[in-house]
Nucleic acid binder design. Sequence first.
DNA 1: GTGGTCTAGACCACG
DNA 2: GTGGTCTAGACCACA
Lengths: 129, 129, 129, 129
Amino acid sequence: MFELDLRSRAPMYEQLVEKIKELIINNVLKPDEQLPTVRVLAGELTINPNTIQKAYRELEHRGYIYSVPGKGSFVRPAVPGNNAARLRILEKELSIIVTEMRYLGAPPQEIITRIKTQLFKDEGGNVDD
Amino acid sequence: MFELDLRSRAPMYEQLVEKIKELIINNVLKPDEQLPTVRVLAGELTINPNTIQKAYRELEHRGYIYSVPGKGSFVRPAVPGNNAARLRILEKELSIIVTEMRYLGAPPQEIITRIKTQLFKDEGGNVDD
Amino acid sequence: MFELDLRSRAPMYEQLVEKIKELIINNVLKPDEQLPTVRVLAGELTINPNTIQKAYRELEHRGYIYSVPGKGSFVRPAVPGNNAARLRILEKELSIIVTEMRYLGAPPQEIITRIKTQLFKDEGGNVDD
Amino acid sequence: MFELDLRSRAPMYEQLVEKIKELIINNVLKPDEQLPTVRVLAGELTINPNTIQKAYRELEHRGYIYSVPGKGSFVRPAVPGNNAARLRILEKELSIIVTEMRYLGAPPQEIITRIKTQLFKDEGGNVDD
DNA sequence: GTGGTCTAGACCACG
DNA sequence: GTGGTCTAGACCACA
C-alpha cells in the first residue's frame, strides 16, 4: 500500500505523513474511512510501531485525521474554511517553485499548462482560459 | 540582509542555502556578483563561519555559485539545459502543491491568475539593465 | 583498511574520497554494503570524525554512496546512463595522460596491451584486435 | 596564448603549469625554445608576476624547462631515460581512469579505440628529431 | 585577507 | 548508537 524510500534523507515518519496526506487529498482514502491500525501497518512495512504512531500523531496535529481511543484513526473530512493560513504557505511555496522553474529555463506557457492540467484533470476537460 | 529563523527545525546552513538561492533566482544577486565573504556574513549573522562555509559549499555543489579560493564566492550565471533532472523534481513538487491547494478549497481560476501574473509580470522588459 | 598519506598536500578527506571510490569501482565494496561508521573509521584512522563525515558527504554528492541517518552509509549501486558528463571529463584526462606517456617515450603498443589486459582480464581473455 | 579559468578551484599557477606542459608535450613549444619572460606573460594574462614565477619554478623542478639567469626560461629537450618513475605514476593513473570509465558503463572497445587514436594520430607525420 | 582544512567537543533527531 | 548540525579556534595556500 505504501512504498517508503529507505535511502531517502527524509525520516521515515515524515515520508509516511506525506504519503498518507497525498492519499487523503487525492480522495483515495475517503472521509471518515479508517486507517490501518498502528500494529497492522507496522507489520506490513516491517518498521517500528513507534514510527507509525509518530506519523499518525503528526497527521492528527495537522488536521488530516482524527483518532478515537480504542477504535482507531480516521480520515477527517476537509472543512473549506480555516485553511487560510495553510493556503498562504502553499501559495508562497508555489510561487517559489514557479520562479525557479522559470530561472532554469522552463517555458512559462508550459508551466501554466501543467498547472491547468493538474487543476482540471478530473473535472470534465475544461482546460481553456 | 538575511534573516534566519533560529527556532526552525531546518538547519541554519540549509536556510541560508534557500535564502541565497532565492536571491539568485530573483536576480537580486546578479551573475558573477560577489557574495559577502564567509567571515563578514558570519559576523553579521553572528553565527560560526564554518556554518556559512557549509552553506556556500552546498550552493556550489548545486551549481548556483562558484568559489575562488583567496578571492571570494560569486554567483554562477545560469546555463539553460542540463537542468532536466531538477526540473522534473520541481514539476512533481508543483503537482503536489496544486493538488493540496485544490483540496483545501482554493478557487482554481484564482491559482491560475496568480501564477500568470507572476510569470509574465516582467515579460516585456529585461530584468537587468 | 585505508592508508592515508599525511604528508600529501591533498586534504585527508579528499584522499579518503578517492580511496573509497576506488574500492567501490573495483567492487571491493559491494552495492548496498555498509561502510564503516563515521566514528569507527575515525577511530581506526585516528582522525577527527568530522573529516570522515566530510568525505562521506562528498561521496554522497558524487553519487557513490548514500547515507541513512541513524543507520549508516552504504554503497549506491551504479546506474548506467546519466554519467555522460563524468565520462567526458575522464576521456579528456585519459587523453592528456596518454599524450604525456608517449612524450616520455613509452612504447605505444605496450600501453595498448596493458589497457587491454586490464579491461578484459575478467571477461574471458579476448585481447585480440 | 594561454587561457586560464579564473573560476576553477585549481590555483592559477597550477593551471599555468599544466597548460605549458601540454604545449611542450604536444611539440607546440619546441626543445630549447624560449618561453615568454615572466614580465611579458604577467602582462598578457594580467596576473601577478609572482604567480608566473611560481609556475616556471615548478616546471623547472619537474624537468620540463630550464632557466638561464639573465637570459630567460627554455624548453628542456626530453630525455627518453630517467622517466621510469614518472611513467609508473602515469600508468597507475591511466589504470584508475580506465577502471572508472568501465564502471560508469563506457564500452571497453570504445576506450581502446580512443587510446589508439590518441597514440597514433600523427604517426605518419613528422617525427623529426 | 580570502576560502579551505582540520580538530575537539557538544547536542539533537532518528529508529 | 547512528548520522547530522553547530561551535570555537587553529593553521595553511593562494593572489
